[in-house]
């Protein structure tokens, strides 16, 4: 049997390894991206997507929420930076800060509720992907591929934290890929991002280590 990492695509082939996948300890990690054993799935077990129906009301620009607009504005700020337009980037960042400030709070959030939220996202990606495909929108399909992998990693890490607690992060750093959002635990960032393939210098360390 072959098992595939749902985050980076690494294949664990029972025939080529000493230890069958099922017998690996739960603490085993993907050698490429650090994902947990539970992030591996047997090869070729495709989920069937039923015909997806979409309520197109949510497409209306006038209905965008503060949270969505914050992301629109930081995205456009980054677009301006890439075009070497620092003044425009700064203005979009100021609009983004305004929207972040007025985004409503979510009360009583904890790691468990966040974990459920991430799982819901993982479950909705295949439907969005189906809609992207039937519209032949490869840009939207790419967003689904990257976003689903990164979300799986986030979910896997939050789950691990819920099991292992503070010791999981006591002696190590946390890195975020500034292009796709992939999160990596380790003393150094990976040579290339397992999701979007950018080089290590695009990773940023999360500060505040005790």
């Amino acid at each position: 049997m072959r098992y595939v990492c749902q985050i980076c695509g690494y294949v664990y082939d029972d025939e080529k390894e000493q230890v069958p996948f099922e017998q690996l300890p739960d603490s085993w990690k993907c050698p490429l991206c650090g994902a947990s054993k539970s992030d591996f799935k047997p090869e070729h077990k495709e989920r069937e997507t039923a015909e997806v129906t979409v309520n197109t009301e949510a497409a209306d620009m006038k209905k965008l929420s503060a949270g969505q607009l914050a992301a629109v504005c930081t995205n456009l700020a980054r677009g301006c930076e890439k075009q070497y337009k620092p003044a425009e980037a700064e203005l979009f960042n100021e609009l983004a800060a305004y929207f972040t400030r007025i985004t409503p709070a979510i009360n009583d959030a904890d790691a468990e509720t966040l974990s459920r939220q991430l799982q819901e996202d993982i479950d909705s990606y295949p439907d969005v992907r189906a809609v992207a495909d039937r519209n032949q929108d490869r840009g939207a399909a790419r967003v689904c591929v990257w976003g689903e992998k990164v979300t799986r990693m986030l979910s896997s890490l939050v789950e691990r934290y819920l099991k292992e607690g503070e010791q999981m992060l006591a002696d190590t750093d946390i890195w975020v890929c500034t292009v796709c959002g992939f999160v990596y635990i380790g003393s150094n960032p990976p040579e290339a991002c397992p999701v979007c393939k950018v080089p290590a210098y695009k990773f940023e360390k999360v500060e505040g280590r005790a």
């Binding site: 969505q68 929108d137 790419r142 979300t151 986030l154 503070e166 992060l169 959002g181 999360v206 280590r209």
Partner: peptide, 24 residues
């Protein structure tokens, strides 16, 4: 301290994913 850092990473990551989505 560990949870704080992990949540900062998730916060940043979720924003980056949302940015990418809104771009498309």
């Amino acid at each position: 301290p560990g949870l704080k850092r992990l949540m900062k990473a998730v916060e940043r990551s979720e924003r980056l994913i949302a940015e990418d989505i809104m771009r498309e």
